[in-house]
Every structure is written in C-alpha cells, then in structure tokens.
Amino acid sequence: MALAFEILGIVLIVLAVLFVLLFIIYFFNLDMKFMVYVVAPFLEKIYDKRDKNQYV
C-alpha cells in the first residue's frame, strides 16, 4: 500500500513538474522562440542550398 502511495506520489510529482515546465514554455512563448531562432534558420539554410528545377 505504502509502495502504491509512493508511486502515486512520484507520478503526481512528475506530472506537476511536467505541468509547470509546459506552462512555463507556454506562457513565456518558449516553443515559438525556439522554433523561430533555432529550427527555422537551420531549415532555411537547407532550402537555400537545395538544387532547384525551376521551369514554366
């Protein structure tokens, strides 16, 4: 029983931490900041380098 409570407690703590982390990401717009300053420039470099088949 004690073990079950311990596991439940750990699960609740993990969920709480996850919630707090996700909420921080959400509220401070960290998801978009990561995308715009890290992922997008990386992808754009790839697009610029790609061979193109431009044709009307």
């Binding site: 996700l22 959400y26 509220f27 401070f28 717009n29 978009m32 995308m35």
Partner: peptide
Amino acid sequence: GKVRRRREWRGFKDTMYDFSRWLYIW
C-alpha cells in the same frame, strides 16, 4: 522580435483553457 514576448494572461480559468488548447495544437 519574430515572436511575442509572452502569451496573454486571461485570468486563471481562461489561461488554463488556452493552455489546454495549446497542448492540443501541439
């Protein structure tokens, strides 16, 4: 910058609702 400084505080209830929708979009 290219994105907003932070998201809007809409009061507890509506911010939580918006947060849940953000999770859904992801």
